[in-house]
Simulated scan of single mutants.
Amino acid sequence: MHSALRERPVVRAPAHLSPPAAAAPATLELEGVARHFGGVPAVDGVSLRAPAGQITGLIGPNGAGKTTVVNLITGILHLTHGRVLLGGEDVSRLEAPQLARCGVARTFQNIRLVPDASVLDNVLVGFHRHETSGAMANLLGLPSARAESRRLKAQVMALLERFGMADLAQHRAGALSYGHQRRIEMMRALATRPRLLLLDEPVAGMNDAEAQSLAHIFRGVADEGVAVLLIEHNMRFVMALCTHIYVLASGRLIAEGGPDAVGRNPRVVEAYLGT
């Protein structure tokens, strides 16, 4: 394999990427959130809080309802009961595009990229939400549009540097390793300058060194005022990174608290290991 395509830990200091000034940091709150399918509750009465500037964990065994919760927050699924609040505002009835404009970004368990496009172009998609020059200016190649294009590409390169992938900017995204593709999806989410970032299994399939390099980046994102909700099976990763953790089992919360308290909770141990 070409040396540029090998997996390697990220060691560069993170570049600064804060939410736009007009988008103040926002805390996520779920109040009694529920989703039923044909009368069967997939998620039932879940309440949690993910403060701005912190990394909050949501864990549970397979089939616990974690991804359903994320789909409810992001408008992919509609609530049966309950409310979703962002920065104190009820966003329960908003659709996914409206929530994106409110500053909600996510990654997916299954990677969703444009495989034949370059790494740079895949990440650039996230920045397009902040374009100001307009379609006509771009079509006519006006100086303002060209200047904005250069500015956005510079921001993409800063983000690629942050993830240790600047030298892969022009590589085809689909030709890269699984770990690199995961990072591209995270960069695209960060490119939207979110107030709330939902990470669904971000280190699945990665080794410890790769996971730790991402942990450093996620801490930097939270330090910039972004509320981060981390859904992950890697318990060691979650325990080391999150300030507060919620535990789901069969669609209901069975525990919450700091990492030490959650790790010692008998109901959590039973949910993961059985009796």
Rank of each mutant, 00 (worst) to 15 (best):
H78D: 14
V228K: 01
A240L: 09
H16V: 12
E89K: 11
N62G: 11
E201F: 02
I76E: 09
P61V: 06
T56L: 06
R162W: 04
R267Y: 06
P194M: 06
A117C: 12
A227M: 09
F218M: 09
G257H: 08
A105C: 08
S133Q: 11
S47E: 07
A261S: 12
A154M: 06
T67A: 12
I254P: 02
A222S: 06
P202G: 06
E31F: 09
A249S: 15
E161Q: 14
M235N: 03
A52R: 03
T243R: 15
A215K: 01
L58D: 01
V70W: 02
T275C: 08
A158P: 04
T68S: 11
P20D: 08
S144I: 13
R183P: 02
G45A: 07
M165Q: 08
P25V: 08
V238P: 00
N265C: 12
V69Q: 00
S92H: 13
P97N: 11
L140G: 08
R195Y: 04
L94F: 13
A189G: 05
S133G: 07
I73Y: 05
H128P: 05
I59N: 00
G57L: 04
V247H: 00
R106F: 08
G63L: 07
T56A: 07
P9G: 13
P194T: 06
P61N: 07
E224I: 07
G45D: 09
S250Y: 13
A24V: 15
Q98R: 15
V123E: 01
N110P: 04
P259Q: 09
L139M: 15
G38S: 10
G63P: 05
Q98W: 13
V11W: 09
P61H: 08
G179H: 08
T107G: 06
F108R: 03
L99N: 02
P202K: 03
N110T: 12
R193H: 13
D200G: 04
L214T: 13
R172H: 10
L199T: 04
A147L: 10
A4I: 14
A13L: 15
N71V: 08
N71R: 10
K66E: 02
R150K: 15
L230H: 00
V11E: 12
E29Y: 08
L140C: 12
A24H: 13
H128M: 12
N110V: 06
H171C: 14
V43M: 03
A137R: 01
V33E: 00
A215C: 10
G38T: 03
A105V: 05
A117Y: 12
V203L: 07
A22N: 11
E148A: 02
I217Q: 01
S213G: 15
C102M: 12
L253V: 05
R172D: 02
A209L: 14
F108P: 01
G126I: 05
P266N: 11
R12S: 14
